[in-house]
């Protein structure tokens, strides 16, 4: 059996008196597409930040792509993020006044690839997300759905094994949301492991696996 992309065991995260994540165990295999659902404040974002190595667990162990995260320095975690993890956020996070192609190219900025290579990869990635005709457009010239697709192109530029999306359709209308979800499914079909936080029941129901959170506890979906 191959190493799982993500493996949490007994992971807790405490913010002061708030136990945002309570003794979570989770194993995500390569190629999975799963939804993380739960009421507001249940710890979904916290879980995603920890799986994405943006934050460290208070207790418990975490393995990402075979690396024991607890044993890595901040520097090494940065490299792990550059190589193995892509992020998509609800608010897109696109730099104002920068053309789409350069925004996407920055997805490889910290991997040591040359600028020419980065831009070439960005061109391909934009084609892949259906924005081949929007290369030179600035963020404010793009629709919300298009902006999120630019953000996805940036996240998958280096073909990371793991893609994390925190409410990627949260700021979009249902049509744009469907386009974005279709894109994520395509990427998953091509082999990327994808974790999607969503409030949308229909979206969650349409994905192969759902992890349900309540008050920081994973209440269902632990096993695939």
């Amino acid at each position: 059996m191959t190493t799982p992309v993500v493996e949490l065991s007994g992971v807790s995260k405490r913010y002061g008196d708030v136990l945002a994540l309570d003794d979570a165990d989770l194993r995500i295999e390569r190629g999975e597409l799963l939804a993380v659902v739960g009421p507001s404040g249940s710890g979904k974002s916290t879980l995603l930040h920890i799986m994405g190595t943006l934050d460290r667990p208070t207790t418990g162990t975490l393995h990402i792509d075979g690396y024991d995260v607890g044993a890595l320095s901040d520097r090494e975690l940065s490299v792990l993020r550059a190589r193995a993890i892509g992020f998509v956020f609800q608010q897109f996070h696109l730099a104002r006044g920068v053309p789409a192609i350069d925004i996407v190219a920055d997805g490889l900025l910290y991997t040591g690839r040359s600028r020419a290579h980065r831009r070439q990869a960005a061109e391909q990635a934009l084609h892949r997300v259906g924005l081949g005709h929007r290369m030179k457009h600035l963020p404010h010239q793009l629709s919300g759905g298009e902006q999120q697709r630019v953000a996805i192109a940036r996240a998958v530029l280096g073909d990371p094994p793991l893609l994390m999306a925190d409410e990627p359709t949260g700021a979009l209308d249902s049509h744009s949301g469907e386009t974005v979800m279709a894109l994520l499914r395509d990427l998953n079909d091509a082999g990327t492991t994808i974790v999607v936080i969503t409030h949308d029941r229909d979206i969650a129901a349409s994905l192969p696996r759902q992890v349900r959170l309540k008050d920081g506890k994973i209440i269902s979906g632990v096993r695939a």
Binding site: D74, L80, A82, Q91
Partner: peptide, 13 residues
């Protein structure tokens, strides 16, 4: 948020 984004893209401190 730009700093956060860059850290998520793999920028070291």
């Amino acid at each position: 948020s730009e700093i956060g984004l860059r850290r998520s893209l793999g920028a070291t401190r």
